[in-house]
């Protein structure tokens, strides 16, 4: 997207027509949907949605639907080509995404894990209970992380990174051995039930797939003779899996697209699709 954004900056007559049509489409359809008798969308505390006449209900939800519809159309305009509507929506999305992550990080990580058990006792009077002084360690390591902003003290952040990397590596070893290696191997080998031909064939297929793909990725021996045959079967399995994963991904994204179009029709244009 970036390459296209930098390389394609000229605006043709066709582009201008497209921008005008898109703007008119959004404004016109928004006005049409708002002009109905239904008025503002209102979600009651029990979750039921109703439509209140304009001027009698809360306008925030109506405004929200217009904003969301505008963003959706602006982002889909990229299907024509990279354009100012898309860029504006994309940049707003980046800013909101980071802001959202920061707010969540504050409430879930800093406030819940550091402020309530430790800092609250220092800044507020009369708080019951005992502060957890062990949390001074991550507080200090967190401040060391921020030392990256001060050039002479940048090296302090290495201590924090060393803790994070060391902890991640240490925890990963036993968990990965258990969940991703031993359990996967067990599931590949122990499920063969010879009483049921279909289940046995499926289990043998899975076993053959696991072994042949592992052989294909084993580069310490030359892929000739029996190894070559097995590795060839591994390639076939890989191709089937890549195709299946591709199809699954496309259909997943298509489902999202259908969901967005459905939302535009039902929420923005207020045309009920189902009774």
């Amino acid at each position: 997207m970036d390459t296209q954004a930098q390389g394609d900056t000229t605006t043709t007559r066709g582009d201008r027509i497209f921008y005008v049509v898109l703007t008119l489409l959004f404004v016109g359809l928004s006005a049409w949907s708002l002009s109905g008798e239904t008025g503002h969308r209102f979600t009651a505390p029990d979750g039921t949605v109703s439509w209140l006449p304009v001027g009698r209900g809360p306008a925030w939800e109506t405004l929200g639907v217009l904003v969301a519809a505008g963003l959706t159309l602006a982002l889909y305009s990229f299907l024509y080509k990279d354009n100012p509507f898309f860029k504006a929506a994309e940049h707003i999305y980046v800013g909101v995404g980071l802001g959202y992550s920061l707010v969540i990080a504050w409430f879930q990580y800093i406030k819940a894990e550091l402020y309530f058990p430790l800092v609250k006792y220092w800044v507020r009077d009369g708080v019951q209970g005992q502060p957890d002084y062990l949390l001074i360690v991550p507080l200090v390591l967190g401040l060391f992380l921020l030392a990256r902003f001060i050039r002479p003290l940048q090296w302090l952040s290495r201590w924090s990174f060393a803790f994070i990397i060391g902890f991640g590596s240490g925890v990963a070893i036993p968990n990965i051995i258990h969940a991703n290696v031993l359990q996967q191997m067990q599931s590949s080998m122990a499920a063969i039930e010879f009483g049921n031909v279909w289940l046995a064939a499926n289990a043998l297929c899975a076993l053959l797939g696991v072994v042949s793909v592992l052989v294909y990725f084993y580069f310490s021996v030359e892929h000739k003779g029996a190894i070559g045959v097995v590795s060839k079967i591994g390639i076939w399995f890989l191709m089937i899996s890549f195709g299946a994963s591709f199809g699954y991904t496309v259909m997943g994204r298509m489902a999202l697209f259908v969901g967005r179009v459905q939302w535009l029709i039902e929420e923005w244009l207020r045309i009920p699709l189902s009774s």
Binding site: I165, G166, G168, S169, G170, A172, I173, I176, I177, N180, V181, Q184, M185, S187, S188, N202, C205, A206, L207, L208, G209, V210, V211, V213, L214, F217, G234, F237, L238, I240, S241, A244, S245, Y248
Partner: peptide, 28 residues
């Protein structure tokens, strides 16, 4: 999805896991 695809995912997961373990040991 449930048989050939799952088998390949499993083999790739085992390979990635062995690589992750080796990298973790190198870091430690």
């Amino acid at each position: 999805m449930a048989n050939p695809n799952m088998a390949v995912k499993r083999a790739i997961l085992i390979g990635i896991s062995l690589g992750t373990i080796a990298t973790s040991l190198r870091i430690i």
